[in-house]
Nucleic acid binder design. Structure first.
Length: 596
RNA sequence: GCCGGGGUAGCUCAACGGUAGAGCAAUCGCUUCGUAAGCGAUAGGUUGUGGGUUCGAAUCCCAUCCCCGGCUCCA
């Protein structure tokens, strides 16, 4: 049901993929039958489902789905075996040309020298390397989900095809569970919750991809920033601050004006010089490093900043808090000597794990991206640096007993990296932390340090972000907790409500005392029924509600309600404050009320 | 940027060529109430924006901005 479970057993994953890939074939058949003139292209299994890309004169909409699904069902019930057959390239070409399938011919042209196979079920044949279930009757629990555009072969210069997405499962229970997960994901959508909880907004008048943090969101941001800064200082980082714009000469030196040009906002002219908004913080930290002669005694130098960067992202890619045009990275650059890299990488990994634990993420996936050793010319930096860095990345993870996948050839041109994807409460992976070597910029800026023997050497530079960006991390947190944040993050922790006007003074006094005890509390004194006040507080997902009625005031106690619905009468104020203070200090993700 | 779908009151939606409407929220009254919506009244819109077609446009056409689902890209 989730991304992590997917890895549990290669064999079962294989049969799932086979089911989904087969389902894609059946969908292609149904679509071609129902919409004549539709040309087929490719249709693989993907996480949780499948798709097939079509070139069709028909404009597909979701209204077509019932008819397609119905036909798919008929085909599946036809009990057709999937039969694979090896075929000569000439014969295959003849087959696809005669059927007027230009995309299949193009695929065939790309398969020179490989064995060609066709897979057939019933009357439908596809050019396909295989991986099918035995018989169409295995295809029973599926659903078409969406239609979308997709470039032929993923290249935006190619024509746009129409992609139909679907999901398929071995059992009805699994299908239903998956569909329920999709609903759950929709309900957790940070854009929806962000508006409902009044956390942030995007303003048309200001422009797309620019985030406005409202009071409650800003409060949470403050907490996230404070925690991170405190933790960074404790771990030997130095905090710095750098400007938002810089002369284009800086970006020429760094090379961003060439390799990152497409993502930068255009120049701002000031007194005949051109400036540009920063898309990255690295060059600024480098300038601080370079500001004076560095000794090996200065290393490792760890410069950290919550640095706000601006990137021109094409309009179609913006997405809530997860993909924006202005965002703040929790950025750090570590300058170190070669013999220090393993310890520094280990420090980064340790810090990242601390972040996950603190914010309540228990599962994650690590990926090490290395270079393609066959093409050293494609990369910046010396081979020995690459090899040493890659070894350090892997060694740190294996010494910690952390499983990771090694992705060869996936490194950026300037250095190898560890990427961390964390898995949220409903099993979705999110790209978050990154620990990345940079062999390019130290060279471009001519960075040096004086070694013990008096020689000048080039430091290694590690770029590291843990939240990734505060905006994205916030978006993920909202979805992870579905807006029910743990006490230490909740913008408002306690709502104290009066039963009748009589208790207004008592409510005000209590809010004052809670605030002085370091808790974020507010009063609800509206002349509403207690039901209405409770409902409003529940919708705000406030962790603790306190009701003061005549009985409570007379007895000098509190009536406490948790947002999970539990209620406690006759609670002593002191134990309430103590329990909440403890829960807040421990940054617990679940209420610690019961052990109060 | 590309393909497709959308923008109507603060929010969720209705009206789909013939006088823009409801619920919630807001404001004002009444209600003083024991754990998820008390009652009433008032106010709120050049239907994203700009053009066009028409006797008449939220509705049809064109352009543009923004949003949504994807593609490509990515913190």
């Amino acid at each position: 049901m989730n991304a992590a479970a997917k890895a549990e057993s290669p064999a079962s994953q294989q049969s799932l993929d086979a089911l989904r890939h087969s389902c894609a074939h059946v969908m292609a058949q149904a679509v071609q039958e129902l919409f004549p003139g539709t040309k087929i292209t490719i249709g693989p299994a993907i996480d949780n489902g499948f798709y097939y890309d079509f070139d069709s004169p028909h404009r597909f909409t979701e209204e077509d789905f019932p008819a397609i699904e119905k036909r798919m069902r008929q085909i599946a019930e036809g009990n057709h075996p999937f039969v694979g057959k090896e075929i000569s390239p000439e014969e295959s070409r003849k087959y696809w040309e005669s059927r007027g399938e230009p995309y299949k011919v193009e695929i065939l042209d790309g398969l020179k020298g490989q064995t060609i196979t066709h897979y057939t079920h019933g009357t439908f044949t596809d050019l396909c390397r295989g991986g099918h279930c035995e018989n169409t009757r295995a295809i029973r629990h599926f659903k078409l989900l969406s239609v979308a555009g997709a470039y032929w072969r993923g290249d935006e210069k190619n024509p746009m095809l129409q992609r139909l997405y679907g999901t398929a499962w071995p059992s009805k229970q699994e299908l239903d569970a998956y569909l329920k997960m999709l609903d759950e994901a929709k309900a957790r959508d940070h854009r929806k919750l962000g508006a409902a909880l009044d956390l942030f907004s995007v303003q048309d008048l200001a422009g797309p991809g620019l985030i406005f943090w409202h009071p409650k969101g800003a409060r949470m941001r403050l907490i996230m920033e404070d925690w991170l800064k405190t933790e960074a200082l404790r771990r030997g980082y130095d905090l710095v601050n750098t400007p938002h714009i810089a002369n284009v000469e800086l970006w020429n030196t760094s090379g961003h004006r060439s390799f990152y040009k497409d993502n930068m906002f255009s120049e701002i002219e000031v007194e005949k010089a051109d400036y540009q908004l920063k898309p990255m913080n690295c060059p600024f930290h480098i300038l601080i490093y370079k500001n004076r002669l560095r000794s090996y005694r200065d290393l490792p130098l760890r410069l950290a900043e919550l640095g706000t960067v601006y990137r021109y992202e094409r309009s179609g890619v913006l997405h809530g808090l997860l993909r924006v045009r202005g965002f703040t990275q929790d950025d750090a650059h570590i300058f170190c000597a070669p013999e220090q890299i393993e310890a520094e990488v280990d420090g980064c990994v340790d810090f990242a794990l601390e972040v996950f634990k603190t914010f309540g993420f228990s599962r994650y996936v690590m990926e090490v991206s290395t270079w393609d050793a066959a093409k050293p010319g494609d990369y910046s930096g010396a081979a020995e640096d690459w090899e040493r860095a890659q070894k350090a990345l892997e060694s740190v993870l294996s010494k910690r007993g952390i499983e990771y996948s090694l992705i060869k050839g996936e490194a950026a041109f300037y250095g190898p990296k560890i990427d961390v994807k964390l898995i949220d409460a409903i099993g979705r992976p999110w790209q978050l932390s990154t620990v990345q070597f940079d062999f390019n910029l130290p060279q471009k800026f001519g960075l040096e340090y004086v070694a013990a023997d008096g020689s000048h050497r080039r430091p290694l530079m590690v770029h590291r972000a843990l939240y990734g960006s505060i905006e994205r991390f916030f978006g993920i947190l909202i979805e992870h907790y579905a807006g029910s944040f743990p006490l230490w993050l909740a913008p408002l922790q306690v709502k104290v409500m009066s039963l009748t006007d009589e208790q207004a003074p008592a409510v005000r006094d209590l809010v004052g005392r809670l605030s002085r005890a370091g808790l974020r509390a507010a009063a609800d004194l509206r002349p509403e029924k207690i039901n209405a006040k409770i409902r409003d507080a529940q919708l705000e997902k406030i962790p603790y509600m306190v009701v003061l009625g005549p009985r409570d005031v007379a007895a000098g106690v509190l009536s406490v309600r948790l947002r999970d619905g539990r209620q406690f009468q006759g609670v002593k104020e002191e134990s309430f404050v103590n329990a909440l203070s403890r829960e807040q200090d421990l940054k617990r993700t679940a209420p610690s009320w019961e052990d109060a």
